[in-house]
Amino acid sequence: MIMQDPPIVELNGVNKWYGDFHVLKDIGLEVARGEKVVVCGPSGSGKSTMIRCINRLEEHQSGCIVVDGVELGDDLKAIEAIRRRVGMVFQSFNLFPHLTVLENLTLAPIRVAGMTPAEAADTAMALLERVRIPDQAAKYPGQLSGGQQQRVAIARALCLKPKVMLFDEPTSALDPEMVGEVLDVMTALASEGMTMICVTHEMAFARAVADTMVFMDEGRVVEVAKPALFFDHPANERTRRFLGKIIGH
């Protein structure tokens, strides 16, 4: 059934250059509704750039990216429409330091989606409940730990009820003891059926949650496979070496 639906995110022949540097080479990827995709690869392989292209934080120069039936181009209205349907979680949280946690969450619903402040606050509190920090609503981001900040960032990204969530190395900037709390929230989100594209090096999380593993190297998608196959019998030599390095110790 799922396979007959059009994919919610589709990249086709996407290329991107930074000056002369060819970051993304002919990327093709399809993500179905409800699918959890984990993208991994060595640093500089273009994985962050790729997911940042999906909500147009980066511009691609050729090929086509379609999100929820809308093609990304120069049309600003289309870009903003897509951004409202795509939530993003950053490596460095990027919470707004001059706003309280609650204001961080209600800003976009009120200003972009036209919710009333009371409605937005209700939604926000429910989300804070879900990421297990409702008692921090009145604090400023600077008063929270890294793990708490990242959970707030996840809640903020969920506020506009996105159809896809992008995670750009969400645990890389965290102290090790805080990684778990963020991954727990992400796992719970996955079990609720959210479509997720995660760039991460947390392989245990990937194995438990992913429907599809994507391995990228030097700007190319090298291997796409189910996690069981990907981890136990990687087809590509490059994938094998990468996994050997990060799981080996």
Partner: peptide, 9 residues
Amino acid sequence: EAADALGLG
């Protein structure tokens, strides 16, 4: 980027 990602314009 965070503001852009929320579609604030």
